[in-house]
Design a protein around this nucleic acid. Sequence first.
RNA 1: UCCUCGGUAGCUCAAUGGUGGAGCAUCCGGCUGUUAACCGGAGGGUUGCAGGUUCGAGCCCUGCCCGAGGAGCCA
Length: 431
Amino acid sequence: MQTIRISEISNYADQEVEIKGWLYNKRSSGSIKFLIIRDGSGYIQVTIIKSEVEKELFEKIGEIEYESAIRIAGRVKKEKRAPLGYEILLKDLQVIHNAQKDYPISLKEHGVGFLMDFRHLWLRSTRQNAVLRIRAEIIKAIRNFLDQEGFILVDAPILTPAACEGTTTLFETNYFEDKAYLTQSGQLYNEASAMAFGKVYCFGPTFRAEKSKTRRHLMEFWMVEPEAAFVELEENNQIQERLITYIVKQVLKNKRAELIVLERDISKLEKIQIPFPRLAYDQAINMLKEKGMQIEWGDDFGGDEETVISQSFDKPVFIHHYPTKCKAFYMKPDPQRPEVVLCADLIAPEGYGEIIGGGQRIDDYNLLLQKIEEHNLPRKDYEWYLDLRKYGSVPHSGFGLGIERTVAWICGLNHVRETIPFPRMLNKIYP
RNA sequence: UCCUCGGUAGCUCAAUGGUGGAGCAUCCGGCUGUUAACCGGAGGGUUGCAGGUUCGAGCCCUGCCCGAGGAGCCA
């Protein structure tokens, strides 16, 4: 008899199969019992009819606790009433490990705080399984897309000697006799790699020691950061459009069942097509003022502003040419209007906020040096970065895509904490 | 760091300042098509902690702890 995974059950109609997994739920009606088995690839109902199995086996089934590891054998039966279209008629069952009877997560409602304390077990539930499968699909799509477009994976270090951007708070750690910091962006290293490989990206965790406590923030999150030589602002935006539409297309194609589990409105994802609207910062300010928001030219956008903007479009929208003072020191000022920079953030629809921050970098040595001094950054830490403008400097651009916010948007979740297996949150690092 | 809301049974929540309850989970019983199954019964409590007001506090007051949402900052 063949051991199969639940996800491939449709290939085995009317055959006898074996499945190894865990008991997800059980129901009993006297002479008929139902077990829901999960094996990591899916969930399937197993039906046990008293008159068709040995008495000893039928009685044993009532004693199996939730989440016990079991091995079942039975015949795959087409069944209209089953969610997958199939169920299994039990022939035999072995308990590999009978779980303790106090499994904390029932199928009834629980609060988020409680579930997060049991995150290691919560991962077993259907919704969490769907979210993390979609996360994996998104990451696969990103890497496929960038590889196809000729970008080379060149990772940036996690341990860094100083602030990459010098602004936000960093996690500090010991590095033998020195201090080191966990990276908050691979971008500066990416610029060096781009001058070596042309088109590169890094993909890895990023750390921010900000005491942020909102649905959009984690202390540790994952970011993909492409960077390309000879690419200017508009081409940079076009790469992002193609990337985002590709990600959405792949999820719709390969993870539709998971989107349905999450009750995601799929029609909203189907609208994600090139081109995305572009809104200059100046226009965005006017738009927000017309909607009655208190904001002046030169203010950066907060969560409320992003939400209002994103709800005005049914696609992601680029906001470009922000005031220079709002953005990082390395952003290239517009030669025609130095008070704004050649940058663009991509705001996801449905109120999900910023998922990409990107732009063109300063390629002139003297201007970069001036900005480093204006921002009071220690020049000696940036000598290597300045070198890139001494030896074959070219126009170049890049962007950073936040994985968790992208997953939250595509899954339709209202908080990023469920989009990563083990979220690191303010004052919470267990489990 | 600041603002708002909350903490009562294992979980989710009720309870006018006057005898702390329900649903689920657990245990016992019933049911041949259940989908978070259902029906009957039972057990289960130092109301986050420490003070205070009151004849009497889960409820009012003060401090602290913890959680949730948000602001700032950002992806």
